[in-house]
């Protein structure tokens, strides 16, 4: 917590944190002693905001957007002291679209100033105060620099897809969420068949072009809330998860069906394989259409694994099975007839 430890008490920003510090911050256990007020319940947070003059109010996201926007508005009204507190939402990765929406409406008044994806460092949260101030004072250069750095940390430079680190952490968070909500998560891992051959014969720029075009096609084939990433040289991953606007499973039948491979994931994976095999790759020359194939493995939570490691292991095994069986196919884990081309 170096960046605020050296400040005198008078200079330390006054922070109200609403949520579980240890879950939100990788250095959460060190927050004690920094004068941060912590409340676990949003109503207690609003009460505390009403009695203090805070520089920053950090709110862990939970519940619907409607609830959150009302709670933020209440925090603003309660904390109408001499300083206007900055409100930062602390979101899990799968809550990012909702967080972006709540921050996006800040210009209409009343909503949050910014959001951070958790877990993060508490010192980073503190540093956001100066970032928000630079934004408020129209320091565009600094704002853009920070935004660029954040993008670099989670994006694969070549394809523009999410990077391995992001995919891994997102999988961990969404599995935790699905465990609580009896939801489902399906992981697809695939690579481009004989990619080394294209690289060796047509050169690395052709290889890069294949990866870039494959990425565009993948993004196009998936639903907008699915997460697509590049996790290795020519290895990609897609995380299929429940529509965030869909309500949690209520009935036993729904819970049972959640344990099976979601049909949507199979449908999308098949579409991806077909589209890719039809696509034109100009750098491969006149024979560049219809030559590219992929092999992949699909594993689903909770059926095939209950942790990120287990799910990736299982999907990897299915991918290897698909390769051994002659490539150009996507296999499900543990099905006797497990080529998904036969399952739609």
């Amino acid at each position: 917590m170096k960046n605020i430890d050296f400040l005198s008490d008078a200079d330390k920003p006054k922070i109200l944190l609403i949520g579980d510090a240890e879950k939100l911050f990788s250095d959460g256990q060190d927050i004690c002693g920094l004068g941060v007020e912590i409340r676990s319940n949003i109503l207690d947070g609003i009460e505390t905001a009403g009695g203090g003059d805070f520089d920053l109010i950090a709110v862990a996201m939970s519940g619907s957007s409607a609830k959150l926007s009302s709670a933020i508005e209440a925090l603003r009204t309660a904390n109408s002291g001499s300083r206007r507190a900055k409100i930062i939402l602390l979101a899990q990765m799968y809550q990012e679209p909702a967080a972006r929406q709540l921050v996006g409406s800040a210009s209409n008044g009343g909503m949050a100033d910014d959001y951070l994806i958790c877990p993060t460092n508490f010192s980073y949260l503190v540093s956001r105060i100066s970032y928000l101030e630079s934004r408020a004072t129209s320091d565009e250069r600094r704002t853009t620099e920070i935004q660029e750095l954040e993008k670099l940390a989670t994006t694969d430079e070549l394809t523009g897809l999410k990077n391995r680190r992001y995919i891994w952490e997102f999988s961990r968070q969404i599995i935790e969420h699905a465990r609580k909500q009896t939801g489902r998560v399906t992981l697809l891992i695939f690579d481009i068949d004989d990619f080394k051959h294209y690289n060796d014969v047509y050169g690395h720029s052709a290889g890069d072009d294949i990866l870039r075009q494959a990425a565009i096609l993948m993004r196009h084939c998936c639903r907008c809330h699915d997460i697509v990433g590049r996790v290795g040289g020519d290895e990609f991953a897609v995380i299929f998860w429940d529509d965030p606007h869909r309500k949690p499973a209520d009935t036993e039948a729904e819970r049972r069906s959640a344990a099976d491979h979601p049909k949507e994931a199979i449908f999308i994976a098949n579409r991806l394989r077909k589209e890719l095999s039809k696509a034109q790759f100009p750098l491969l020359g006149p024979q560049g259409r219809g030559v590219l194939t992929i092999s992949g493995g699909l594993a689903s939570f909770p059926r095939d694994g209950s942790t990120v490691d287990e799910l990736f292991d299982q999907a990897d095994k299915a991918l290897l099975d698909a390769k051994r069986s002659g490539k150009n196919r996507i296999y499900l884990v543990g099905k006797p007839e497990n080529d998904i081309a036969d399952m739609e």
Partner: peptide, 13 residues
């Protein structure tokens, strides 16, 4: 107040 969040805020005033 439309909900308890706004009500707490109002109550604090």
């Amino acid at each position: 107040c439309p909900d308890v969040y706004q009500a707490v805020s109002r109550l604090m005033k």
